[in-house]
Nucleic acid binder design. Sequence first.
DNA 1: TTTATTTACGGAAACGTTTTCGAAAAAAAC
DNA 2: GTTTTTTTCGAAAACGTTTCCGTAAATAAA
Lengths: 342, 342
Amino acid sequence: MPASPLQRTNLKKLAQELNLSISTVSRALNDSYEIAADTKERVKQKAQELGYEPNPYASGLRSRKSKTIGLVIPEVANNFFSLAIDGVEEIARANDYHVLIYLTHESHEREATIIQHLAGGRVDGILMSVASESPDASHLATLVESNVPLVFFDRVGEGIATARVTTDDYASGYRATEHLVEQGCRRVAYLLISDTLSIGQKRMEGYRAALQAHGLPADAALIVPGTLDRDQNTRRIRELLEQDPAIDGIFASVETLAISSYEACQQLGRRVPEEVKIISFSNLATAAYLNPPLTTIRQPAYEMGKKAAEILFRAISRNRPVLPTQSAELQSTLVVRRSTGG
Amino acid sequence: MPASPLQRTNLKKLAQELNLSISTVSRALNDSYEIAADTKERVKQKAQELGYEPNPYASGLRSRKSKTIGLVIPEVANNFFSLAIDGVEEIARANDYHVLIYLTHESHEREATIIQHLAGGRVDGILMSVASESPDASHLATLVESNVPLVFFDRVGEGIATARVTTDDYASGYRATEHLVEQGCRRVAYLLISDTLSIGQKRMEGYRAALQAHGLPADAALIVPGTLDRDQNTRRIRELLEQDPAIDGIFASVETLAISSYEACQQLGRRVPEEVKIISFSNLATAAYLNPPLTTIRQPAYEMGKKAAEILFRAISRNRPVLPTQSAELQSTLVVRRSTGG
DNA sequence: TTTATTTACGGAAACGTTTTCGAAAAAAAC
DNA sequence: GTTTTTTTCGAAAACGTTTCCGTAAATAAA
């Protein structure tokens, strides 16, 4: 028995049915001015009827437009990135674009191979937040060479001339530290993600400046880099608190380190906020229901995703490179809760 | 000045450089048995040297393989789906596949148009968790007609003959309810996501069965459907608790409803767990640090994503349809914490 | 040595679009 | 009534792969 070929309707079939040429049908569907209004109508009608869906690979090949952007982020199990994805997807949908998602898991190697693939023309543009393990941005140079528009958000690659959507990290770091000091802290530890990430550096600069402004010493021993392993982070923080019992404030530059701090304090029996006050960069939806409720610096993650996507699409639609001057800096907000309370 | 054409290296250019034909170069790169070992080596060497990256749209068009799967989920700002994405991405990468992500935001209409597009051949297969607003699965029929492999995970579409990766929802619903009853609850409310979702139904069946088994009445007034708006959910729960003060247990079938329950109890000054005990399906990483720590039914989200992807890739690689018999049911685990404590 | 088979490659068609070029018919200008 | 312009469409060439088919040389079988 001859299995029905199940021929997906394409332009050829559509043209035959309509007694028109392929080119006419194509133009009609693309609303070309060269096609008579009634013909357009007839074509669209038939296309609808036969459930025609253009082959994205054929049109991508011919038109050199993939209608797709790449979203490269370290992880997804993180409220900041989840919200950012939401914003990106929103704008992508509005522009009739598709979103390819890639997770680096903070690995430089993964990031490099992903970028390598994306430079091959699979996407019309890229949004990314660089991996903490990436020592520099040299692996992103091929993108620039390939003319693939790129916009950074939150975690930027230094030395790449393109737009970046960030938050006021220095100011936020300053404000967070100052808040701890104002609440009575005299010895504040700073937990950072990675040495190489610029946002960690900027937040730390704010931290240092705030300490200095309030006449407190900036002790290098108070600065603890985190790892990818939560248990290990908890252990490090615990050791820190044990070795330096005078520590009465913790400034976590990233969400997971705040959780580890809670764990460490719980294990050591240190009361929060009475003995140790904790503040963290975080977009946790449940921050208000933690025990105690966590004071956070909340980044406008959703808006950052939207903004970054908007900048990218402006470049794509105008067929222009993304310029550093199009960068945007959004403001984080300090949400005071009991973890830094009196 | 003549701007350098910046010709991306393709097979043609590669063939010219090597004094070989296009077909030979293509076959060499694809490790065809027809090509001599030393030629392969020479070709690959040159490809590496010129940074050749095959055009995905050309090869997708010709080979009818997109090397891409579609992931269709309701939202991403949800720990369950975040973890599932992680699992999916892991397997996709292992199979050298790309992942297109689509968010339905629980909208049936969005879901339908997404599916419509995906049926056009953009992806080799689809993983999805259906939107709560989808009344039935009729919009998924086109996929089956188009022969696009589909695997459901967690939220399934009834009536579609394909594999599904779920958890033991009935048993979990039963266990959760029984746990509340054993902890002394006599009047347990059930908060569900949506009327149409099968998982909500199954969990509710377990809930009903457990009540009956323990000689408790199943009052329809105890069953409250949620909405997409968190504040509205909180209000409804608050009204429920006010109108029926005898309620001493809440079973939330989804994470956000647990948060709303916390909010409602806090607003009403009801103590958890003394006056009201709360249990919830949830994958919150911070469940243990909530106030009070939340007793959860934790689904193996990461594993579900992995499993669903594995089933899909088996079908794709063997070029066979996905069969319902390949479905898998994983087990959720009850994690008892203080929100249901004595 | 002659014939059959295998090895290693090239030519060209095909995938389904978009787009360039051309051209007939209709409308407008003269 | 002729010429010019506009309107509307068709033929065919791309886009960069994969793959079918053919074929020369090299090897094996006779």
